[in-house]
Write a protein that binds this DNA or RNA. Sequence first.
DNA 1: CGCCGCATTGACGTTCGTCAAGTCTAGTGG
DNA 2: CCACTAGACTTGACGAACGTCAATGCGGCG
Lengths: 239, 239
Amino acid sequence: MIKDTIKVACSNCNLRELCMPLGLSDEELVRVDELVASRRRIKRGQTLFQTGEKFSSLYAVRTGFFKTAVTTEDGRDQVTGFQMAGEIIGLDGIVNDHHTCDAIALEDAEVCIMPFDRIEEISREVGALQHHVHKIMSREIVREHGVMLLLGSMRAEERLAAFLLNLVQRLQARGFSRSELILRMTREEIGSYLGMKLETVSRTFSKFADEGIIEVKQRHILIQDAEALKRLVNPQVCH
Amino acid sequence: MIKDTIKVACSNCNLRELCMPLGLSDEELVRVDELVASRRRIKRGQTLFQTGEKFSSLYAVRTGFFKTAVTTEDGRDQVTGFQMAGEIIGLDGIVNDHHTCDAIALEDAEVCIMPFDRIEEISREVGALQHHVHKIMSREIVREHGVMLLLGSMRAEERLAAFLLNLVQRLQARGFSRSELILRMTREEIGSYLGMKLETVSRTFSKFADEGIIEVKQRHILIQDAEALKRLVNPQVCH
DNA sequence: CGCCGCATTGACGTTCGTCAAGTCTAGTGG
DNA sequence: CCACTAGACTTGACGAACGTCAATGCGGCG
Protein backbone atom coordinates (compact mmCIF):
# COMPACT_ATOMS: atom_id res chain seq x y z
CA MET A 1 0.00 0.00 0.00
CA ILE A 2 1.49 3.32 -1.09
CA LYS A 3 0.83 6.28 1.17
CA ASP A 4 -0.12 9.41 -0.68
CA THR A 5 2.39 11.87 0.75
CA ILE A 6 3.74 15.22 -0.44
CA LYS A 7 6.63 17.42 0.74
CA VAL A 8 5.72 20.95 1.83
CA ALA A 9 6.42 24.04 3.97
CA CYS A 10 4.41 25.85 6.67
CA SER A 11 5.97 29.24 6.14
CA ASN A 12 3.75 30.04 3.17
CA CYS A 13 0.73 27.94 4.12
CA ASN A 14 -2.50 29.92 4.24
CA LEU A 15 -3.46 28.14 7.46
CA ARG A 16 -0.31 29.24 9.22
CA GLU A 17 -2.00 31.60 11.62
CA LEU A 18 -4.33 28.78 12.65
CA CYS A 19 -1.83 26.10 13.53
CA MET A 20 1.49 27.90 13.96
CA PRO A 21 2.75 30.58 16.37
CA LEU A 22 2.92 34.15 15.13
CA GLY A 23 5.83 36.56 15.10
CA LEU A 24 8.66 34.17 14.34
CA SER A 25 12.00 35.42 13.05
CA ASP A 26 13.19 34.20 9.66
CA GLU A 27 15.55 31.63 11.15
CA GLU A 28 12.82 30.36 13.46
CA LEU A 29 10.54 30.00 10.46
CA VAL A 30 13.14 27.82 8.78
CA ARG A 31 13.28 25.58 11.85
CA VAL A 32 9.52 25.34 12.11
CA ASP A 33 9.26 24.41 8.45
CA GLU A 34 11.07 21.21 9.36
CA LEU A 35 8.13 20.25 11.52
CA VAL A 36 5.94 18.92 8.77
CA ALA A 37 7.51 15.76 7.45
CA SER A 38 4.92 15.30 4.75
CA ARG A 39 1.25 15.37 4.00
CA ARG A 40 -1.27 12.63 3.68
CA ARG A 41 -4.63 12.35 1.97
CA ILE A 42 -7.45 10.49 3.66
CA LYS A 43 -10.60 9.50 1.82
CA ARG A 44 -13.99 9.96 3.41
CA GLY A 45 -14.67 7.17 5.88
CA GLN A 46 -11.00 6.22 6.22
CA THR A 47 -9.15 6.44 9.53
CA LEU A 48 -6.21 8.73 10.15
CA PHE A 49 -5.35 6.53 13.13
CA GLN A 50 -7.11 4.02 15.33
CA THR A 51 -7.23 3.11 19.01
CA GLY A 52 -4.20 1.08 20.00
CA GLU A 53 -2.08 2.25 17.11
CA LYS A 54 1.44 3.43 17.96
CA PHE A 55 1.65 7.19 18.42
CA SER A 56 4.30 9.00 16.45
CA SER A 57 2.92 12.25 15.09
CA LEU A 58 0.44 15.02 15.53
CA TYR A 59 -1.65 15.95 12.53
CA ALA A 60 -2.79 19.37 11.38
CA VAL A 61 -5.95 19.30 9.29
CA ARG A 62 -5.30 21.06 5.98
CA THR A 63 -8.55 20.36 4.24
CA GLY A 64 -11.57 18.25 5.08
CA PHE A 65 -13.32 17.37 8.29
CA PHE A 66 -12.67 14.74 10.96
CA LYS A 67 -14.31 13.20 13.97
CA THR A 68 -12.53 11.58 16.89
CA ALA A 69 -14.26 8.88 18.93
CA VAL A 70 -13.51 6.59 21.85
CA THR A 71 -15.00 3.13 22.12
CA THR A 72 -15.88 1.01 25.15
CA GLU A 73 -15.14 -2.70 25.36
CA ASP A 74 -18.81 -3.42 24.89
CA GLY A 75 -19.04 -1.54 21.63
CA ARG A 76 -20.60 1.77 22.61
CA ASP A 77 -18.79 4.75 21.25
CA GLN A 78 -18.60 8.42 22.02
CA VAL A 79 -17.60 11.11 19.56
CA THR A 80 -15.15 13.33 21.43
CA GLY A 81 -14.75 16.06 18.83
CA PHE A 82 -15.02 17.32 15.28
CA GLN A 83 -11.95 18.86 13.69
CA MET A 84 -11.69 21.22 10.75
CA ALA A 85 -8.91 23.03 8.83
CA GLY A 86 -6.12 24.31 11.07
CA GLU A 87 -6.98 22.12 14.04
CA ILE A 88 -4.64 19.56 15.55
CA ILE A 89 -5.41 15.85 15.98
CA GLY A 90 -3.54 13.21 17.95
CA LEU A 91 -2.80 14.76 21.35
CA ASP A 92 -4.39 11.76 23.05
CA GLY A 93 -1.50 9.55 21.96
CA ILE A 94 1.30 11.31 23.84
CA VAL A 95 0.68 9.97 27.31
CA ASN A 96 0.90 6.25 26.57
CA ASP A 97 2.68 6.31 23.24
CA HIS A 98 -0.43 4.78 21.71
CA HIS A 99 -3.61 6.35 20.45
CA THR A 100 -6.68 6.00 22.63
CA CYS A 101 -9.26 7.10 20.10
CA ASP A 102 -10.06 6.76 16.41
CA ALA A 103 -9.77 9.69 14.00
CA ILE A 104 -12.01 9.31 10.97
CA ALA A 105 -12.38 11.58 7.95
CA LEU A 106 -15.98 12.71 7.40
CA GLU A 107 -15.05 13.98 3.95
CA ASP A 108 -11.99 13.62 1.75
CA ALA A 109 -9.21 15.29 3.67
CA GLU A 110 -5.56 16.18 3.78
CA VAL A 111 -3.37 16.47 6.88
CA CYS A 112 0.14 17.67 7.64
CA ILE A 113 2.15 15.05 9.48
CA MET A 114 4.28 16.46 12.32
CA PRO A 115 6.48 13.80 13.97
CA PHE A 116 6.25 14.39 17.69
CA ASP A 117 9.91 13.86 18.48
CA ARG A 118 10.66 16.58 15.97
CA ILE A 119 8.09 18.85 17.64
CA GLU A 120 9.81 18.33 20.98
CA GLU A 121 13.24 18.89 19.49
CA ILE A 122 12.36 22.13 17.75
CA SER A 123 10.31 23.27 20.77
CA ARG A 124 13.49 23.20 22.83
CA GLU A 125 15.07 25.72 20.48
CA VAL A 126 12.12 27.89 19.54
CA GLY A 127 10.39 29.15 22.64
CA ALA A 128 7.42 30.46 20.69
CA LEU A 129 6.74 26.99 19.32
CA GLN A 130 7.08 25.45 22.77
CA HIS A 131 4.50 27.82 24.18
CA HIS A 132 2.29 27.29 21.15
CA VAL A 133 2.22 23.55 21.74
CA HIS A 134 1.31 24.13 25.38
CA LYS A 135 -1.47 26.45 24.33
CA ILE A 136 -2.89 23.96 21.86
CA MET A 137 -3.06 21.28 24.54
CA SER A 138 -4.51 23.68 27.08
CA ARG A 139 -7.10 24.81 24.54
CA GLU A 140 -8.15 21.22 24.06
CA ILE A 141 -8.51 20.76 27.82
CA VAL A 142 -10.65 23.88 28.06
CA ARG A 143 -12.76 22.80 25.10
CA GLU A 144 -13.42 19.50 26.82
CA HIS A 145 -14.43 21.32 29.99
CA GLY A 146 -17.07 22.99 27.85
CA VAL A 147 -18.27 19.67 26.52
CA MET A 148 -18.47 18.28 30.04
CA LEU A 149 -20.58 21.27 31.04
CA LEU A 150 -22.80 20.67 28.05
CA LEU A 151 -23.17 16.94 28.69
CA GLY A 152 -23.51 17.28 32.42
CA SER A 153 -25.94 20.10 32.83
CA MET A 154 -27.72 21.09 29.62
CA ARG A 155 -30.90 19.78 28.07
CA ALA A 156 -31.31 18.64 24.49
CA GLU A 157 -32.25 22.03 23.03
CA GLU A 158 -29.44 23.83 24.81
CA ARG A 159 -26.92 21.24 23.67
CA LEU A 160 -27.88 21.46 20.05
CA ALA A 161 -27.99 25.25 20.16
CA ALA A 162 -24.52 25.36 21.71
CA PHE A 163 -23.28 22.90 19.11
CA LEU A 164 -24.57 24.93 16.17
CA LEU A 165 -23.20 28.17 17.56
CA ASN A 166 -19.80 26.61 18.12
CA LEU A 167 -19.65 25.14 14.63
CA VAL A 168 -20.71 28.30 12.88
CA GLN A 169 -18.29 30.38 14.94
CA ARG A 170 -15.38 28.16 13.94
CA LEU A 171 -16.46 28.23 10.32
CA GLN A 172 -16.75 32.00 10.41
CA ALA A 173 -13.17 32.21 11.71
CA ARG A 174 -12.23 30.36 8.51
CA GLY A 175 -14.01 32.81 6.28
CA PHE A 176 -17.32 31.02 5.85
CA SER A 177 -20.79 32.38 6.41
CA ARG A 178 -21.92 33.02 9.95
CA SER A 179 -25.47 31.98 9.21
CA GLU A 180 -25.19 29.09 6.81
CA LEU A 181 -23.46 25.75 7.21
CA ILE A 182 -23.34 22.25 5.89
CA LEU A 183 -23.10 19.50 8.46
CA ARG A 184 -20.42 17.00 7.58
CA MET A 185 -21.65 14.46 10.12
CA THR A 186 -24.78 12.36 10.50
CA ARG A 187 -27.49 12.91 13.09
CA GLU A 188 -26.15 9.89 14.89
CA GLU A 189 -22.66 11.40 15.12
CA ILE A 190 -24.07 14.69 16.38
CA GLY A 191 -26.09 12.72 18.90
CA SER A 192 -23.08 10.77 20.06
CA TYR A 193 -21.11 13.96 20.59
CA LEU A 194 -23.99 15.64 22.43
CA GLY A 195 -25.05 12.64 24.48
CA MET A 196 -28.43 12.16 22.84
CA LYS A 197 -30.06 9.77 20.41
CA LEU A 198 -30.31 10.55 16.71
CA GLU A 199 -34.10 10.78 16.95
CA THR A 200 -33.79 13.46 19.59
CA VAL A 201 -31.33 15.37 17.42
CA SER A 202 -33.77 15.19 14.53
CA ARG A 203 -36.75 16.22 16.64
CA THR A 204 -34.83 19.15 18.09
CA PHE A 205 -33.82 20.35 14.62
CA SER A 206 -37.47 20.17 13.62
CA LYS A 207 -38.52 22.07 16.72
CA PHE A 208 -36.01 24.85 15.98
CA ALA A 209 -37.29 24.96 12.41
CA ASP A 210 -40.93 25.19 13.56
CA GLU A 211 -39.98 28.11 15.77
CA GLY A 212 -38.29 29.89 12.89
CA ILE A 213 -34.88 29.77 14.54
CA ILE A 214 -33.21 27.78 11.79
CA GLU A 215 -34.03 26.29 8.41
CA VAL A 216 -33.10 22.65 7.96
CA LYS A 217 -32.78 20.90 4.63
CA GLN A 218 -31.01 17.63 5.35
CA ARG A 219 -27.45 18.62 6.22
CA HIS A 220 -27.84 22.17 5.05
CA ILE A 221 -28.56 24.52 7.96
CA LEU A 222 -29.52 28.17 7.74
CA ILE A 223 -29.44 30.11 11.00
CA GLN A 224 -32.26 32.64 10.91
CA ASP A 225 -32.18 33.80 14.50
CA ALA A 226 -28.77 33.47 16.13
CA GLU A 227 -29.93 35.46 19.15
CA ALA A 228 -32.60 32.88 19.87
CA LEU A 229 -29.94 30.18 19.84
CA LYS A 230 -27.80 32.18 22.24
CA ARG A 231 -30.75 32.64 24.55
CA LEU A 232 -31.29 28.89 24.53
CA VAL A 233 -27.72 28.27 25.63
CA ASN A 234 -27.99 30.89 28.36
CA PRO A 235 -31.62 30.85 29.47
CA GLN A 236 -31.25 33.44 32.22
CA VAL A 237 -29.35 36.07 30.31
CA CYS A 238 -31.61 38.13 28.05
CA HIS A 239 -29.97 40.20 25.33
CA MET B 1 -3.25 39.07 53.85
CA ILE B 2 -0.12 36.95 54.36
CA LYS B 3 0.25 33.91 52.14
CA ASP B 4 1.40 30.83 53.96
CA THR B 5 4.36 29.74 51.83
CA ILE B 6 7.38 27.50 52.44
CA LYS B 7 10.62 26.85 50.53
CA VAL B 8 11.24 23.24 49.46
CA ALA B 9 12.79 20.69 47.06
CA CYS B 10 11.29 17.99 44.81
CA SER B 11 14.34 15.77 44.78
CA ASN B 12 13.51 14.23 48.12
CA CYS B 13 9.75 14.59 48.05
CA ASN B 14 7.89 11.35 48.60
CA LEU B 15 5.48 12.25 45.81
CA ARG B 16 8.27 12.65 43.29
CA GLU B 17 7.35 9.61 41.23
CA LEU B 18 3.81 10.95 40.94
CA CYS B 19 4.47 14.43 39.64
CA MET B 20 8.05 14.38 38.32
CA PRO B 21 9.78 12.48 35.54
CA LEU B 22 11.91 9.47 36.47
CA GLY B 23 15.52 8.69 35.68
CA LEU B 24 16.98 12.18 35.90
CA SER B 25 20.69 12.73 36.29
CA ASP B 26 21.95 14.58 39.36
CA GLU B 27 22.43 17.84 37.53
CA GLU B 28 18.96 17.56 35.99
CA LEU B 29 17.54 16.99 39.46
CA VAL B 30 19.15 20.22 40.58
CA ARG B 31 17.50 22.08 37.71
CA VAL B 32 14.11 20.52 38.35
CA ASP B 33 14.32 21.45 42.02
CA GLU B 34 14.15 25.06 40.88
CA LEU B 35 10.68 24.40 39.54
CA VAL B 36 8.87 24.72 42.80
CA ALA B 37 9.03 28.32 43.88
CA SER B 38 7.23 27.66 47.14
CA ARG B 39 4.31 25.92 48.74
CA ARG B 40 0.98 27.19 49.82
CA ARG B 41 -1.63 25.96 52.28
CA ILE B 42 -5.31 26.19 51.42
CA LYS B 43 -8.02 25.71 54.00
CA ARG B 44 -11.08 23.61 53.26
CA GLY B 45 -13.53 25.60 51.19
CA GLN B 46 -10.93 28.13 50.03
CA THR B 47 -10.03 28.59 46.39
CA LEU B 48 -6.60 27.91 44.95
CA PHE B 49 -7.59 30.06 41.97
CA GLN B 50 -10.79 31.31 40.41
CA THR B 51 -12.20 31.82 36.94
CA GLY B 52 -10.81 34.98 35.36
CA GLU B 53 -7.76 35.11 37.61
CA LYS B 54 -4.42 35.68 35.87
CA PHE B 55 -2.58 32.43 35.15
CA SER B 56 0.98 32.19 36.34
CA SER B 57 1.66 28.77 37.77
CA LEU B 58 0.74 25.13 37.78
CA TYR B 59 0.10 23.53 41.15
CA ALA B 60 1.00 20.05 42.33
CA VAL B 61 -1.21 18.77 45.11
CA ARG B 62 0.94 17.72 48.06
CA THR B 63 -1.76 16.93 50.56
CA GLY B 64 -5.50 17.33 50.58
CA PHE B 65 -8.17 17.08 47.95
CA PHE B 66 -9.48 19.54 45.35
CA LYS B 67 -12.31 19.94 42.92
CA THR B 68 -12.23 22.03 39.76
CA ALA B 69 -15.45 23.45 38.36
CA VAL B 70 -16.57 25.63 35.48
CA THR B 71 -19.53 27.98 35.78
CA THR B 72 -22.00 29.25 33.19
CA GLU B 73 -23.14 32.85 33.04
CA ASP B 74 -26.49 31.79 34.40
CA GLY B 75 -25.04 30.21 37.50
CA ARG B 76 -25.06 26.51 36.71
CA ASP B 77 -21.80 24.83 37.42
CA GLN B 78 -20.10 21.63 36.40
CA VAL B 79 -17.40 19.88 38.41
CA THR B 80 -14.71 18.96 35.88
CA GLY B 81 -12.50 16.90 38.15
CA PHE B 82 -11.29 15.89 41.59
CA GLN B 83 -7.56 16.08 42.30
CA MET B 84 -5.55 14.31 44.96
CA ALA B 85 -1.88 14.13 46.05
CA GLY B 86 0.57 14.17 43.15
CA GLU B 87 -1.90 15.51 40.61
CA ILE B 88 -1.47 18.76 38.71
CA ILE B 89 -3.96 21.64 38.68
CA GLY B 90 -4.08 24.73 36.50
CA LEU B 91 -3.51 23.49 32.94
CA ASP B 92 -6.68 25.29 31.83
CA GLY B 93 -5.00 28.66 32.33
CA ILE B 94 -2.24 28.31 29.76
CA VAL B 95 -4.23 28.99 26.61
CA ASN B 96 -5.61 32.43 27.48
CA ASP B 97 -3.28 33.40 30.30
CA HIS B 98 -6.27 33.38 32.61
CA HIS B 99 -7.93 30.58 34.49
CA THR B 100 -11.23 29.32 33.13
CA CYS B 101 -12.31 27.29 36.13
CA ASP B 102 -12.28 27.44 39.91
CA ALA B 103 -10.10 25.16 42.01
CA ILE B 104 -11.47 24.64 45.51
CA ALA B 105 -10.00 22.65 48.40
CA LEU B 106 -12.40 20.01 49.73
CA GLU B 107 -10.19 19.53 52.75
CA ASP B 108 -7.23 21.42 54.19
CA ALA B 109 -4.55 21.13 51.56
CA GLU B 110 -1.05 22.05 50.53
CA VAL B 111 0.22 22.61 46.99
CA CYS B 112 3.59 23.16 45.36
CA ILE B 113 3.64 26.30 43.24
CA MET B 114 5.44 25.89 39.91
CA PRO B 115 5.66 29.16 37.94
CA PHE B 116 4.86 28.29 34.36
CA ASP B 117 7.55 30.43 32.75
CA ARG B 118 10.06 28.54 34.85
CA ILE B 119 8.54 25.23 33.71
CA GLU B 120 8.97 26.28 30.10
CA GLU B 121 12.51 27.50 30.70
CA ILE B 122 13.69 24.32 32.40
CA SER B 123 11.77 22.19 29.87
CA ARG B 124 13.95 23.61 27.12
CA GLU B 125 17.02 22.28 28.88
CA VAL B 126 15.75 19.03 30.38
CA GLY B 127 14.13 16.90 27.68
CA ALA B 128 12.69 14.49 30.21
CA LEU B 129 10.82 17.31 31.90
CA GLN B 130 9.57 18.61 28.58
CA HIS B 131 8.16 15.22 27.69
CA HIS B 132 6.72 14.84 31.18
CA VAL B 133 4.78 18.08 30.84
CA HIS B 134 3.41 16.92 27.50
CA LYS B 135 2.37 13.63 29.04
CA ILE B 136 0.60 15.31 31.92
CA MET B 137 -1.43 17.44 29.52
CA SER B 138 -2.15 14.49 27.26
CA ARG B 139 -3.23 12.43 30.27
CA GLU B 140 -5.68 15.14 31.21
CA ILE B 141 -7.10 15.14 27.67
CA VAL B 142 -7.52 11.36 27.76
CA ARG B 143 -9.12 11.51 31.19
CA GLU B 144 -11.62 14.01 29.90
CA HIS B 145 -12.40 11.73 26.95
CA GLY B 146 -13.35 9.14 29.54
CA VAL B 147 -15.60 11.59 31.33
CA MET B 148 -17.26 12.51 28.04
CA LEU B 149 -17.91 8.83 27.39
CA LEU B 150 -19.37 8.49 30.86
CA LEU B 151 -21.57 11.57 30.54
CA GLY B 152 -22.59 10.88 26.99
CA SER B 153 -23.42 7.22 27.00
CA MET B 154 -23.71 5.72 30.48
CA ARG B 155 -26.67 5.48 32.82
CA ALA B 156 -26.69 6.51 36.46
CA GLU B 157 -25.56 3.17 37.90
CA GLU B 158 -22.75 2.79 35.41
CA ARG B 159 -21.55 6.32 36.06
CA LEU B 160 -21.42 5.92 39.79
CA ALA B 161 -19.74 2.51 39.51
CA ALA B 162 -17.11 3.95 37.18
CA PHE B 163 -16.60 6.86 39.53
CA LEU B 164 -16.05 4.66 42.58
CA LEU B 165 -13.68 2.35 40.72
CA ASN B 166 -11.68 5.29 39.45
CA LEU B 167 -11.42 6.87 42.88
CA VAL B 168 -10.40 3.71 44.66
CA GLN B 169 -7.87 2.87 41.98
CA ARG B 170 -6.19 6.26 42.36
CA LEU B 171 -6.23 5.92 46.13
CA GLN B 172 -4.73 2.47 45.89
CA ALA B 173 -1.88 3.87 43.78
CA ARG B 174 -1.18 6.14 46.76
CA GLY B 175 -1.04 3.30 49.21
CA PHE B 176 -4.60 3.36 50.52
CA SER B 177 -7.05 0.49 50.72
CA ARG B 178 -8.55 -0.82 47.53
CA SER B 179 -11.88 -1.52 49.16
CA GLU B 180 -12.43 1.33 51.57
CA LEU B 181 -12.62 5.05 50.96
CA ILE B 182 -13.86 8.28 52.41
CA LEU B 183 -15.55 10.64 50.02
CA ARG B 184 -14.23 14.16 50.37
CA MET B 185 -17.06 15.65 48.35
CA THR B 186 -20.80 16.01 48.84
CA ARG B 187 -23.46 14.09 46.94
CA GLU B 188 -24.16 17.26 45.03
CA GLU B 189 -20.53 17.55 43.89
CA ILE B 190 -20.49 13.91 42.84
CA GLY B 191 -23.72 14.53 40.97
CA SER B 192 -22.35 17.59 39.24
CA TYR B 193 -19.30 15.66 38.08
CA LEU B 194 -21.39 12.72 36.89
CA GLY B 195 -24.18 14.74 35.31
CA MET B 196 -26.89 13.67 37.73
CA LYS B 197 -28.83 15.19 40.62
CA LEU B 198 -27.81 14.62 44.21
CA GLU B 199 -30.97 12.62 44.89
CA THR B 200 -30.09 10.23 42.09
CA VAL B 201 -26.58 9.84 43.51
CA SER B 202 -28.05 9.05 46.91
CA ARG B 203 -30.60 6.61 45.52
CA THR B 204 -27.96 4.83 43.49
CA PHE B 205 -25.72 4.47 46.53
CA SER B 206 -28.67 3.00 48.40
CA LYS B 207 -29.39 0.61 45.54
CA PHE B 208 -25.78 -0.61 45.50
CA ALA B 209 -25.98 -1.07 49.27
CA ASP B 210 -29.24 -3.05 49.00
CA GLU B 211 -27.59 -5.33 46.46
CA GLY B 212 -24.63 -5.91 48.77
CA ILE B 213 -22.17 -4.32 46.36
CA ILE B 214 -21.04 -1.60 48.74
CA GLU B 215 -21.65 -0.44 52.29
CA VAL B 216 -22.48 3.25 52.71
CA LYS B 217 -22.24 5.14 55.95
CA GLN B 218 -22.43 8.82 55.06
CA ARG B 219 -19.16 9.55 53.27
CA HIS B 220 -17.54 6.31 54.29
CA ILE B 221 -17.73 3.69 51.52
CA LEU B 222 -16.78 0.04 51.75
CA ILE B 223 -16.57 -1.84 48.48
CA GLN B 224 -17.74 -5.38 49.08
CA ASP B 225 -17.99 -6.62 45.51
CA ALA B 226 -15.62 -4.83 43.15
CA GLU B 227 -16.38 -7.32 40.38
CA ALA B 228 -20.04 -6.35 40.46
CA LEU B 229 -19.02 -2.71 40.01
CA LYS B 230 -16.82 -3.64 37.06
CA ARG B 231 -19.68 -5.58 35.48
CA LEU B 232 -21.88 -2.52 35.83
CA VAL B 233 -19.40 -0.38 33.95
CA ASN B 234 -19.06 -2.96 31.20
CA PRO B 235 -22.43 -4.71 30.99
CA GLN B 236 -21.52 -7.04 28.11
CA VAL B 237 -18.21 -8.31 29.41
CA CYS B 238 -18.67 -11.01 32.05
CA HIS B 239 -15.70 -11.87 34.24
C1' DC C 1 -29.31 21.15 73.57
C1' DG C 2 -30.55 22.90 69.30
C1' DC C 3 -29.22 24.34 64.88
C1' DC C 4 -27.61 23.69 60.18
C1' DG C 5 -25.92 21.42 56.35
C1' DC C 6 -25.94 17.09 54.29
C1' DA C 7 -28.23 12.91 53.15
C1' DT C 8 -32.20 9.80 52.45
C1' DT C 9 -36.60 8.54 50.79
C1' DG C 10 -41.15 8.94 48.61
C1' DA C 11 -44.59 10.68 45.18
C1' DC C 12 -45.07 12.58 40.96
C1' DG C 13 -43.82 14.79 36.41
C1' DT C 14 -40.84 15.64 32.41
C1' DT C 15 -37.55 14.59 29.21
C1' DC C 16 -35.66 11.72 26.46
C1' DG C 17 -34.95 6.86 24.79
C1' DT C 18 -37.06 2.96 22.37
C1' DC C 19 -39.44 0.88 18.78
C1' DA C 20 -41.58 1.13 14.57
C1' DA C 21 -43.29 2.96 10.29
C1' DG C 22 -42.54 5.75 6.61
C1' DT C 23 -39.95 9.44 3.64
C1' DC C 24 -36.24 11.45 1.28
C1' DT C 25 -31.83 11.54 -1.18
C1' DA C 26 -27.69 10.22 -3.38
C1' DG C 27 -25.52 6.82 -5.66
C1' DT C 28 -25.65 2.55 -8.66
C1' DG C 29 -26.48 -0.12 -12.38
C1' DG C 30 -29.41 -1.53 -16.13
C1' DC D 1 -32.16 8.45 -18.31
C1' DC D 2 -34.64 6.26 -14.97
C1' DA D 3 -35.67 2.70 -11.67
C1' DC D 4 -33.84 0.74 -7.60
C1' DT D 5 -31.65 0.48 -3.30
C1' DA D 6 -29.32 1.52 0.90
C1' DG D 7 -28.49 4.73 4.14
C1' DA D 8 -29.91 8.78 6.33
C1' DC D 9 -33.59 11.26 8.19
C1' DT D 10 -38.31 12.25 10.08
C1' DT D 11 -42.22 11.44 12.85
C1' DG D 12 -45.41 9.18 16.11
C1' DA D 13 -46.71 6.37 20.19
C1' DC D 14 -45.25 4.65 24.32
C1' DG D 15 -42.37 3.74 28.41
C1' DA D 16 -38.34 4.06 31.41
C1' DA D 17 -35.01 6.77 33.67
C1' DC D 18 -34.15 10.50 35.94
C1' DG D 19 -35.42 15.22 37.73
C1' DT D 20 -38.34 17.89 40.88
C1' DC D 21 -40.49 18.86 45.06
C1' DA D 22 -41.18 17.93 49.66
C1' DA D 23 -40.81 15.66 54.06
C1' DT D 24 -37.80 13.56 57.20
C1' DG D 25 -33.50 11.78 59.31
C1' DC D 26 -28.85 12.18 60.84
C1' DG D 27 -24.54 13.97 62.68
C1' DG D 28 -21.32 17.48 63.90
C1' DC D 29 -20.52 21.81 66.10
C1' DG D 30 -21.19 25.91 68.64
